[in-house]
Every structure is written in structure tokens, then in C-alpha cells.
């Protein structure tokens, strides 16, 4: 009787242990699977852009509870939630600049709606948002590089003249015209995507990319001499010896671009009534010795 009792107890304990172990093992397996799935599923495709104020992606994914209130409160209805089967983490908000860019509302209703600070409430000026960074990514197809006047991205930019400027360059094809090259400045660009939406090409030549993809990073050991010099207030290496030119009196040479400078002699009222002791072509003066010989 006692033995049978013990036997029965033993079986239940064994059963209990084996069920527990089985469950623990299968749940661990599921957990590992879910972990790997999470790693894959949590990657955001580069063209999907988070709403303004979104925390860095990893923090964003732990903070966003996928409620969709930002989607609801967006007055332009540009935001979507990632659906099952999309490449976007399930239920997390995003927009696609080419089809619906952020209109940069001053009151930022999407951020105000967020209950978990996944869209950072410390963002109060929409111009401080950094959703991404516009990049003129295809310079072969952007017609500005062909010398055509377009400037649509420059003109639609909500921070016109700061986030995108036009860089005038010589047009070597015609030899006499200018290229109006759009240049994006990361210190002002919010990544709203209005430029990408407005780009007149079939496929936009200017695209908003995640900042970490769009931006390079200087080697950390790198120092720019002129900046260090400015910081230190003096040259950090042996200063250059000032170059001596063999020039006639009243003539200086500026290495930095002005070239030859001819100073008028103010204290010579009795000098012969001529503008300069030299020919109008400075080369004549420079080559004078040769000619005199």
C-alpha cells in the first residue's frame, strides 16, 4: 500500500516534471523563433520614414505601442501603420515621402497624440525635426546637372534657402551658362520629403533617406588644420615664412587671389602725370629683366 502510494506520487512528480520541461522547451523554442523574427521584422526599409520626433529606431520600437493615434491626428493623412506582410514592423507608423510627405504642421499634432513619448514630446519646433535627410542621389538624371532650369525641390522646400540652396556652377557644355545645382544642408533639412514628392522626374532624383544612411562620418582622429589653428589662436606647426617677392616699389602680390596689387603713391604730387610706372599688362613688369637684357 505504502509502496503503491509512493509509486503513484513518483509518477505524478515525474509527469509534472516532464510536462513542465516539455512546455519550457517548446516555449523557449518559440521564444528563439520570435526573437529571430523580431530581428528581421524590426528592420525598417530606407524609404519608410518615421513621423517627426521619432526616437532612434531601436528606442522607438520599444516605446511605440502601435495605437495609431499619430495616424489619426495627422491632418494630411500621410501616416500608415505597418501591416502584417509589409516590411515595416507590424503596427508601427511611417510615411512614404514620394507619395505623401510630411507637411510640417506647426503644432505637430502627431507628436502631441503619442501616449508613450515614442514621438518625443520635447520636439516643439517642427523645424528641429530630423525625420531623415534629403539627398540629391541621382546626379545623372537630375536635370539641373544638365544645365536645365528646374529648382522645384529648392522652391517647395519649407525651409527654402536654408535646407536646400542653389549652387551656381559653370556649365562646361555650353561654355557660357550656369548650372543651378541643388545642395542639401543637413543642419536645416528636416527630412519632410516635400522635395522628393515634388521632383519632376519619373523617379525622384532627390530622396529622403535615414540620416545614418545619408550621412558619412569623418575618421575620429581627423583634424582640420585651419580649424585647430583658429581654436588655438596660433599656428600649431612652425609658421610659414612669409614669401618674399622680388617686386618694384609700390607693388604687392596677394597669394590668396587678388594677384598683383599696385598701390598708388599718395606722397608724390610732383611725379610725372601718369597712373603707374608700369605698363597696363603686369606681365611686362614681371618679365622686364629678361627684356632689358
Amino acid at each position: 500500500m505504502a509502496e503503491a502510494d509512493r509509486k503513484q506520487k513518483g509518477t505524478t512528480r515525474r509527469q509534472f516534471l516532464s510536462t513542465t520541461l516539455k512546455t519550457a522547451c517548446s516555449v523557449s523554442l518559440m521564444g528563439i523563433g520570435l526573437g529571430f523574427y523580431a530581428q528581421r521584422a524590426n528592420a525598417l526599409p530606407p524609404l519608410a520614414i518615421r513621423p517627426p520626433g521619432a526616437l532612434p529606431e531601436e528606442d522607438f520600437l520599444s516605446a511605440c505601442i502601435r495605437c495609431g493615434l499619430c495616424v489619426r491626428d495627422c491632418p494630411y493623412d500621410i501616416l500608415f501603420l505597418g501591416q502584417l506582410g509589409d516590411d515595416i514592423p507590424t503596427g508601427s507608423p511611417y510615411f512614404i515621402a514620394r507619395t505623401g510627405p510630411c507637411e510640417m504642421c506647426e503644432d505637430i499634432p502627431c507628436v502631441a497624440a503619442c501616449p508613450t513619448n515614442a514621438l518625443d514630446h520635447s520636439l516643439t519646433d517642427i523645424n528641429d525635426a530630423r525625420m531623415g535627410l534629403a539627398v540629391v542621389i541621382d546626379q545623372e538624371n537630375c536635370i539641373a546637372f544638365q544645365g536645365l532650369r528646374c529648382e522645384v525641390c529648392f522652391n517647395v522646400c519649407p525651409i527654402r534657402g536654408k535646407a536646400i540652396t542653389l549652387d551656381y556652377q559653370h556649365n562646361p557644355r555650353s561654355g557660357k551658362h550656369a548650372l543651378f545645382i541643388p545642395v542639401v544642408h543637413s543642419e536645416a533639412c528636416t527630412g519632410c520629403g516635400l522635395c522628393e514628392k515634388a521632383c519632376i522626374l519619373e523617379k525622384a532624383a532627390i530622396k529622403v533617406l535615414p540620416i545614418d544612411i545619408a550621412k558619412g562620418e569623418l575618421g575620429h582622429h581627423y583634424r582640420f588644420g585651419w580649424k585647430e589653428k583658429e581654436k588655438a589662436g596660433k599656428a600649431l606647426v612652425t609658421p610659414d615664412v612669409k614669401h618674399q617677392y622680388n617686386l618694384p616699389e609700390g607693388v604687392r602680390y596677394d597669394l590668396q587671389g587678388k594677384g598683383l596689387i599696385i598701390e598708388k603713391k599718395a606722397e608724390a604730387p610732383h611725379a610725372p602725370p601718369q597712373d603707374s610706372p608700369f605698363s597696363s599688362n603686369p606681365l611686362d613688369t614681371l618679365n622686364r629683366k629678361k627684356g632689358d637684357d
Binding site: 524590426n42 531601436e58 505601442i65 502601435r66 500608415f80 502584417l84 514592423p89 503596427g91
Partner: peptide
């Protein structure tokens, strides 16, 4: 993982979102 892991596969919220958001 630092993410809300169950929301990736949670049938409850996925169903509701499917009806309301696509």
C-alpha cells in the same frame, strides 16, 4: 530585444488594426 515583442504577432491587436487601419 528592446522592442514590444508580442505586438509583432499579437492576433488581438493585429485583428483590430486590420479592421481599422488596413
Amino acid at each position: 530585444t528592446g522592442s514590444i515583442i508580442w505586438e509583432l504577432v499579437n492576433p488581438v491587436t493585429i485583428t483590430v488594426r486590420a479592421l481599422l487601419f488596413g
